[in-house]
Amino acid sequence: MIAYLGRRIVQSVLILLGISIITFALLYLLPADPVRQIAGRSATPATVESIRRQLGLDQPFLVQYGRYLWNLLQGDLGRSYIQRSEVSQLILARLPATLLLMVGAIVCELLIGLTMGLAAAVRRGSRTDNSLMVASFVGVSAPQFVVGLLLLYIFAVRLGWFPIGGYGTFRHLVLPSLTVGIMGAGWYARMMRSSMVDVLHQDYIRTARAKGLGRLKVLVRHALPNAILPIVAMVGIDIGILMGGIVVVESVFGWPGIGQLVWQAIQRVDIPIIMGVTLVSALAIVLGNLFADLVAPFIDPRIKLR
């Protein structure tokens, strides 16, 4: 177990290192010039050059990356070009909001998706099954900004059940979480259905029924733990997909998370913020996967961490 964790941590560090190199290189090759953004249109060439030198952007790629990495190892993510404050503080200030939205989204995904998948699998081939699968297909294929605006219009503008935007109470959380979660719910519904249908055909389900167990017990105690295994692994990977959705949804709902931060930073080529948010997201994905792998042996005793 200790050896396994040790090896996974070493792997994770290597992954983060790789991601930092790739992102840094992509931003370096970008045709947009951050210095022009900082200096503004009216700046003289001399001012532009002085800012460039000041930020170290006149150095070759390897020197720039080396300096960034050296600072990173000391916990310094650099300063924002535009906002003139520490990137780490900007991120830390907005991280709780994003984490909250992410947890809300995952809860929505699993609650809606797993219930739908379970119901469809149990009534396989029925009208319920068909309509649930059509619904999940719509969920998977609807773009999130459309879903977000639709939910806003119905539940905030027309019905007035939830606030139109902002952050602070549980009621603020519902619509953004649903918007991010609906797409994932569609995926999970389909995965859960096929996984469950598979499990329901297994010999041990027949054994459980032959013991005289009731339908619910067979389903909950015997089928569910087996069917949920592939889903657990999926949740780990899902965090990455969620990040993409969160960037869009945060701007639709005016949610003050790192999605909005990075959205503004991309428009202004604010490289330190883009780098910082990318690394934090990557870390979240790596940790999510590690967590999923650590949970798996508790569900399935056949899985050994080696």
Binding site: D203, T207, A208, A210, L213, R215, I299
Partner: peptide, 27 residues
């Protein structure tokens, strides 16, 4: 079904061909 559940495993029991797959792997 309910009356049948009281009989299954209690008055009539069954064992199957495949011992490798007939027991639930996670319990």
């Amino acid at each position: 079904e309910r009356a049948m559940q009281a009989i299954r495993g209690n008055r009539i029991a069954m064992i199957f061909q495949e011992p490798m797959t007939s027991l639930n792997p996670v319990l």
